[in-house]
Design a protein around this nucleic acid. Structure first.
Lengths: 136, 136
DNA sequence: TTGTACTGTAACAAATAAAATTACAGAATG
DNA sequence: CATTCTGTAATTTTATTTGTTACAGTACAA
């Protein structure tokens, strides 16, 4: 159920912030996170698509933050990586002949978006810079 | 990543509330949710462990709410079924030789518990009775 | 007291999803 | 033009989730 894209992306962003603008290779990032470099590059592709990072190809290439860490909040990062419903969703369609089953998905949807809004609001109160400053 | 225990449990509780105290079989519940009865029984085992439902074995048996729907809030239900970290956790240990990797898990943990508290607070504002009342 | 309809639970199989690996084209550098 | 990177696809491996089968035990009711 659960994938680890959020912690991976945040780990990447933290390392890039720590690099203070220097270009960092996917191999180095993968080494700190302890995952495969190709997976890092896939996450970076997504982070780039959302404007958080930029990359430089070729020899001496790598990635770097595309905006100031103070202008990236963790709610945006969450939104950039989320793919599932936060509280899980059965892929099976409930029975449409059952009066409860027929309606439950729509009610779960509103429940989920309310709950997710509360989560995002909380995450948004913290910037990448706030997060990175905790490391010494 | 993502499992569907929360929607399944909430679906079960909704059906039981709707049954107004009558005993409901796992087969009936499974039919509405459109999943396997054994999976329903496993979820019920957990709901029973947390005091939300009770079951009656043998012929004519099944499950029923153990407390009033007004006394069950959705935050408690979430807590009863949660098993992973909300925002995902890489099972791989980050590199302990990296100053960021070495510390990131502890910082993610506090980030997660704050965010999860916000989510639970939101969910707790709604009772099972509130949720069920949306169905007509 | 026996058949029937349930739950409880374990063991296993199948399906799905996530992650790792391999491979290689293309870009930038010296 | 060799080297060191990224970008990306294809494939394999591994892990997780879900479904299935099986059967003992419990309660009811004829």
């Amino acid at each position: 159920m659960n994938n680890s894209r959020f912690p991976i992306s945040l780990h990447i962003l933290t390392l890039l912030d720590d690099a203070k603008g220097a270009v960092v290779s996917s191999e180095y990032l993968a080494g700190s996170i302890n995952i495969n470099p190709v997976l890092v590059r896939k996450e970076i592709m997504n982070l780039r698509k959302h404007g958080f990072v930029d990359s430089k190809e070729g020899k001496g290439g790598g990635s770097y933050l595309a905006k100031n860490a103070i202008d990236i909040n963790l709610g945006e990062v969450y939104l950039a990586v989320r793919n599932h419903h936060l509280l899980g969703q059965s892929k099976n369609e409930p029975n449409p002949k059952c009066p409860i089953g027929r309606q439950i998905n729509q009610h779960l949807d509103t429940l989920y978006s309310d709950a997710e809004s509360a989560l995002i609001k909380n995450l948004s109160s913290q910037t990448l810079a706030d997060f990175t400053s905790k490391f010494q």
